[in-house]
Amino acid sequence: MTHAPLFEHAPPGTPVPAVSLRDLTVAYRETPVLWDVDLDIPAGSLTAIIGPNGAGKSTLIKAALGLAPLAAGSVSIFGEPYKEQRDLVGYVPQRGSVDWDFPTNALDVVMMGTYGRLGWIRRPGKAQREVAMRSLEQLGMADFAHRQISQLSGGQQQRVFLARALAQDAELYVMDEPFVGVDATTERAIVDLLRELQARGKTVVCVHHDLESAPDYFDWLVLLNVRIIADGPFAATFTPENLSRTYGGRTHVLGRLDHEAVAREAQEIELRI
């Protein structure tokens, strides 16, 4: 298992966190789903947000992007409110959140990533088309640019979504379960992309489900279950104690400090919950 050193690419001095949440409580219909979250995600990190179903992982990133109602607290992105930093944030929603029968092709979907910089009314042109094409190429999807999106496989659709985020040309990329239901080729493409984004000094925050692969892919960890259970450098945070507190307190089965065993146990626990 390899872990990239932290902050390798972060600027010198005390860096501003990419995402900073203060006293954040999110409620849907008066019922809080995230309680009093305080969290800093360092710039330049590859961060996984991990927790059981219903822990509020998606809600956390939606709150960070101004898509969920804040009952209390505040969000800042690189030190400023999200509204002022929109252009710095690329967003990959869950693949299942859109209708893939929509009458359009892959290139057009990727071009949507450029709409934010264009603002209202201005139309995408040649420059936006080129950005979209390059983004598709980077994910090995150039041959599918003019393919109807309903005719793409699940993994290919996911790569289109990632290409769209790339076309946003952001500093921080926020992804909701990008690895769910994808084939091996796509999984590799996503991992390569994450590494490359980090090498270019970008920050990536992923909601992640798979405890086994997490140590290979990420270098910073947030364990979440309605509130923050633990956060910090991956290896130091990915402990049996923290995982068992996240997944429901079965400490007696989590005796070893072997990551894979911990991952297996925690996943079994999640299945039972």
Binding site: L67, R86, R164
Partner: peptide, 22 residues
Amino acid sequence: GIFYKELKLTTFDAGLAAALGF
């Protein structure tokens, strides 16, 4: 004609549209 881009984006992916400020 004027709001084609906005109509398309909010129809296809309202979440991204909101995140981008539309």
